[in-house]
Simulated scan of single mutants.
Amino acid sequence: MATERDRRREAYVEKARAELSGLAARGVRMGGNAFSAVVLAKGELSPEEQAGAELLSGPDGVALRKSLDKLGYEPEDWCTLCLPAPGTPGALPASLVREALAALDPATVVCCDNAAAQAVRDAYADDLAALQSFSEAMLEPGYVVYVRGVRVLALGGFANALGDQRKKQLMWARLKQIPPLGEPF
């Protein structure tokens, strides 16, 4: 027999399912665990991803998941979100980017490339403009910024960095700034 807690939990799951289905129907491309603490946003897609392969299923995704594991995140504690740069094919309106991130409700958003950073910049322009630091307001790579209570880190071309040892080390240094936050209670 279902308890009140079970019914409430099921209502939350149904609400999330409805929100995510609605987002997908409006062109939002996502993958992974929708209840995770980390959203990996990518806008510059590989040819395989453009052809329909799962987001971050290539070498960049493998490297990101290994990095998150080394930082102490659980293996399933990530979600992907496709955020092409505004004005490019497949780009989402700023309002839909905000809605998708609100529905996913992550503790941390990692913008894997400049296209995703630009989409987040456009979606949260007013919030970012209120920041004191110009570098943070522009979501420059390597800065951890808090936007509406969410940590946002722009990596600045993670996939392109994989072929260069020095750039890989730079990406690792940036990722080390966002360890898991722990339980909220």
Rank of each mutant, 00 (worst) to 15 (best):
S46A: 15
R17W: 05
V62S: 06
V39W: 00
G58F: 11
L83I: 04
E76Q: 06
P75C: 08
E49R: 03
L23W: 03
L81A: 07
S36R: 09
A85D: 00
R26G: 09
S21G: 15
R26Y: 10
V39E: 11
L83Q: 03
T80S: 15
A53I: 10
C82V: 07
V38L: 04
E44W: 09
C82K: 03
A37N: 11
T80D: 12
R17C: 07
A63P: 01
L55C: 12
R29F: 06
Q50R: 12
L45Q: 08
E54R: 14
L71E: 05
N33R: 10
A16Q: 02
G43W: 00
R26L: 11
K66I: 04
A51G: 14
L45E: 04
F35L: 12
L20V: 13
L64F: 06
G52F: 03
V39I: 15
S21N: 14
G22I: 03
L64Y: 08
L68Y: 01
G72V: 04
M30I: 10
G87K: 09
L45M: 10
D60T: 15
D60A: 15
N33I: 08
P75R: 06
V38R: 02
R65G: 00
V28L: 04
R29E: 04
E49W: 02
E44D: 15
V28I: 05
L20C: 08
E44T: 14
D69T: 10
V39N: 12
P86E: 02
M30T: 08
L40H: 07
E48Y: 13
P59C: 14
R17P: 05
R29T: 07
C82S: 11
L68H: 02
T88H: 03
Y73G: 02
L40E: 07
G27I: 03
L23R: 09
L64A: 12
C82T: 01
G87R: 01
R65V: 00
G52R: 08
A63I: 06
D60P: 06
G43Q: 10
L45H: 02
G32A: 10
C82W: 01
E19P: 06
S21E: 14
T80C: 14
G22W: 08
P47C: 05
K42A: 15
G61D: 11
D77G: 00
S21V: 01
V28R: 00
P75V: 02
K70D: 06
P75S: 04
G87W: 09
Q50G: 11
K15G: 03
